[in-house]
Protein backbone atom coordinates (compact mmCIF):
# COMPACT_ATOMS: atom_id res chain seq x y z
CA UNK A 1 0.00 0.00 0.00
CA UNK A 2 2.99 2.27 0.61
CA UNK A 3 3.70 2.19 -3.09
CA UNK A 4 0.22 3.23 -4.11
CA UNK A 5 1.01 6.97 -4.49
CA UNK A 6 4.14 6.19 -6.50
CA UNK A 7 2.16 3.87 -8.72
CA UNK A 8 -0.48 6.54 -9.26
CA UNK A 9 2.11 9.17 -10.14
CA UNK A 10 3.75 6.76 -12.56
CA UNK A 11 0.41 6.02 -14.19
CA UNK A 12 -0.36 9.70 -14.44
CA UNK A 13 3.00 10.42 -16.06
CA UNK A 14 2.49 7.62 -18.52
CA UNK A 15 -0.96 8.94 -19.41
CA UNK A 16 0.41 12.46 -19.82
CA UNK A 17 3.14 11.38 -22.24
CA UNK A 18 0.70 9.19 -24.15
CA UNK A 19 -1.57 12.20 -24.54
CA UNK A 20 1.26 14.41 -25.69
CA UNK A 21 2.14 11.87 -28.38
CA UNK A 22 -1.43 11.84 -29.62
CA UNK A 23 -0.94 14.88 -31.80
CA UNK A 24 1.74 14.75 -34.42
CA UNK A 25 4.22 17.49 -33.63
CA UNK A 26 5.02 20.05 -36.27
CA UNK A 27 8.52 21.23 -36.88
CA UNK A 28 9.50 24.27 -38.80
CA UNK A 29 13.20 24.94 -39.01
CA UNK A 30 14.42 28.50 -38.88
CA UNK A 31 17.92 29.85 -39.27
CA UNK A 32 17.46 32.63 -36.78
CA UNK A 33 15.34 33.42 -33.79
CA UNK A 34 14.06 36.51 -35.60
CA UNK A 35 12.73 34.39 -38.45
CA UNK A 36 10.88 32.19 -36.02
CA UNK A 37 9.42 35.25 -34.31
CA UNK A 38 8.28 36.50 -37.68
CA UNK A 39 6.63 33.19 -38.47
CA UNK A 40 4.85 33.15 -35.11
CA UNK A 41 3.65 36.69 -35.71
CA UNK A 42 2.31 35.87 -39.15
CA UNK A 43 0.40 32.76 -38.17
CA UNK A 44 -1.04 34.58 -35.16
CA UNK A 45 -2.67 37.24 -37.31
CA UNK A 46 -4.08 34.93 -39.96
CA UNK A 47 -7.51 33.52 -39.36
CA UNK A 48 -8.62 29.98 -40.04
CA UNK A 49 -11.46 29.93 -42.61
CA UNK A 50 -12.86 26.70 -41.23
CA UNK A 51 -12.85 27.33 -37.50
CA UNK A 52 -13.61 30.97 -37.60
CA UNK A 53 -12.66 32.14 -34.15
CA UNK A 54 -9.17 30.76 -34.22
CA UNK A 55 -6.01 31.94 -35.84
CA UNK A 56 -4.04 29.42 -37.86
CA UNK A 57 -1.48 29.15 -35.07
CA UNK A 58 -4.05 27.77 -32.63
CA UNK A 59 -6.25 25.83 -34.99
CA UNK A 60 -5.56 22.20 -35.73
CA UNK A 61 -7.89 22.02 -38.73
CA UNK A 62 -6.15 20.51 -41.77
CA UNK A 63 -6.64 23.72 -43.70
CA UNK A 64 -4.74 25.65 -41.01
CA UNK A 65 -1.89 23.20 -41.28
CA UNK A 66 -1.82 23.78 -45.05
CA UNK A 67 -1.82 27.52 -44.48
CA UNK A 68 1.01 27.31 -41.95
CA UNK A 69 3.00 25.21 -44.42
CA UNK A 70 2.37 27.78 -47.12
CA UNK A 71 3.48 30.63 -44.86
CA UNK A 72 6.64 28.70 -44.04
CA UNK A 73 7.38 27.88 -47.68
CA UNK A 74 6.83 31.48 -48.77
CA UNK A 75 9.07 32.72 -45.96
CA UNK A 76 11.81 30.33 -47.02
CA UNK A 77 11.53 31.58 -50.59
CA UNK A 78 12.15 35.13 -49.37
CA UNK A 79 8.64 36.59 -49.59
CA UNK A 80 7.83 39.70 -47.55
CA UNK A 81 5.07 39.71 -44.93
CA UNK A 82 2.76 41.57 -47.30
CA UNK A 83 3.37 39.07 -50.06
CA UNK A 84 2.66 36.15 -47.76
CA UNK A 85 -0.56 37.63 -46.41
CA UNK A 86 -1.48 38.68 -49.94
CA UNK A 87 -1.01 35.14 -51.26
CA UNK A 88 -3.44 33.80 -48.67
CA UNK A 89 -5.93 36.62 -49.19
CA UNK A 90 -5.92 35.88 -52.93
CA UNK A 91 -7.05 32.35 -52.17
CA UNK A 92 -9.25 32.68 -49.10
CA UNK A 93 -10.36 36.31 -49.21
CA UNK A 94 -10.00 39.24 -46.82
CA UNK A 95 -11.64 37.04 -44.24
CA UNK A 96 -8.32 35.46 -43.26
CA UNK A 97 -6.92 38.76 -42.03
CA UNK A 98 -7.66 39.65 -38.46
CA UNK A 99 -6.76 43.21 -39.36
CA UNK A 100 -8.83 44.21 -42.37
CA UNK A 101 -7.44 47.06 -44.50
CA UNK A 102 -8.97 50.51 -44.19
CA UNK A 103 -11.07 51.04 -47.30
CA UNK A 104 -14.56 52.04 -48.33
CA UNK A 105 -16.19 48.88 -46.97
CA UNK A 106 -14.39 48.88 -43.65
CA UNK A 107 -14.27 52.60 -42.90
CA UNK A 108 -17.30 52.36 -40.62
CA UNK A 109 -15.74 49.44 -38.78
CA UNK A 110 -12.48 51.28 -38.18
CA UNK A 111 -14.11 54.65 -37.65
CA UNK A 112 -16.78 53.55 -35.21
CA UNK A 113 -14.70 53.69 -32.01
CA UNK A 114 -13.66 57.27 -32.82
CA UNK A 115 -17.24 58.18 -33.72
CA UNK A 116 -18.51 56.66 -30.46
CA UNK A 117 -15.93 58.50 -28.34
CA UNK A 118 -16.61 61.77 -30.16
CA UNK A 119 -20.36 61.33 -29.73
CA UNK A 120 -19.89 60.62 -26.03
CA UNK A 121 -17.82 63.77 -25.60
CA UNK A 122 -20.43 65.82 -27.40
CA UNK A 123 -23.20 64.52 -25.16
CA UNK A 124 -21.17 65.18 -22.00
CA UNK A 125 -20.18 68.63 -23.24
CA UNK A 126 -23.82 69.38 -24.06
CA UNK A 127 -24.97 68.40 -20.59
CA UNK A 128 -22.24 70.42 -18.89
CA UNK A 129 -22.80 73.53 -21.01
CA UNK A 130 -26.52 73.43 -20.48
CA UNK A 131 -26.21 73.12 -16.70
CA UNK A 132 -23.75 76.05 -16.61
CA UNK A 133 -25.96 78.24 -18.77
CA UNK A 134 -28.91 78.04 -16.40
CA UNK A 135 -28.68 81.35 -14.59
CA UNK A 136 -28.00 80.66 -10.96
CA UNK A 137 -31.45 81.61 -9.68
CA UNK A 138 -31.49 82.40 -5.99
CA UNK A 139 -32.89 79.36 -4.32
CA UNK A 140 -35.24 81.52 -2.24
CA UNK A 141 -37.12 84.65 -3.08
CA UNK A 142 -36.41 87.87 -1.24
CA UNK A 143 -39.56 87.39 0.85
CA UNK A 144 -38.57 83.88 1.83
CA UNK A 145 -35.07 85.01 2.72
CA UNK A 146 -36.45 87.66 5.00
CA UNK A 147 -38.55 84.95 6.66
CA UNK A 148 -35.55 82.74 7.11
CA UNK A 149 -33.61 85.54 8.70
CA UNK A 150 -36.55 86.21 10.94
CA UNK A 151 -36.79 82.57 11.99
CA UNK A 152 -33.09 82.27 12.62
CA UNK A 153 -33.10 85.47 14.63
CA UNK A 154 -35.97 84.10 16.75
CA UNK A 155 -34.16 80.89 17.46
CA UNK A 156 -30.80 82.43 18.26
CA UNK A 157 -30.64 82.46 22.05
CA UNK A 158 -28.09 85.25 22.11
CA UNK A 159 -30.55 87.62 20.45
CA UNK A 160 -33.16 86.96 23.05
CA UNK A 161 -33.24 89.59 25.66
Amino acid sequence: MRFMPILLVAMWMFAATAHAQGEAPEFYDFDTQAEEQRFRGLIAELRCPKCQNQNIADSNAPISKDMRDQVYLLMQSGATDDEIVGALVDRFGEFVKYKPPVDRRTILLWGFPAIAVLGGFMIVAGVVIRSRKQSPEPALSAQEQARVRQMLADKDPSSRS
Binding site: D66, R91, F92
Partner: peptide
Amino acid sequence: RGSLGFDLGVYG
Protein backbone atom coordinates in the same frame (compact mmCIF):
# COMPACT_ATOMS: atom_id res chain seq x y z
CA ARG B 1 -1.96 16.76 -51.69
CA GLY B 2 -4.69 19.33 -52.03
CA SER B 3 -2.57 21.78 -54.00
CA LEU B 4 -5.28 22.89 -56.44
CA GLY B 5 -7.73 22.81 -53.55
CA PHE B 6 -5.51 25.22 -51.67
CA ASP B 7 -5.18 27.55 -54.65
CA LEU B 8 -8.96 27.52 -54.99
CA GLY B 9 -9.32 28.45 -51.34
CA VAL B 10 -11.13 25.23 -50.48
CA TYR B 11 -11.63 25.07 -46.72
CA GLY B 12 -14.29 22.45 -46.35
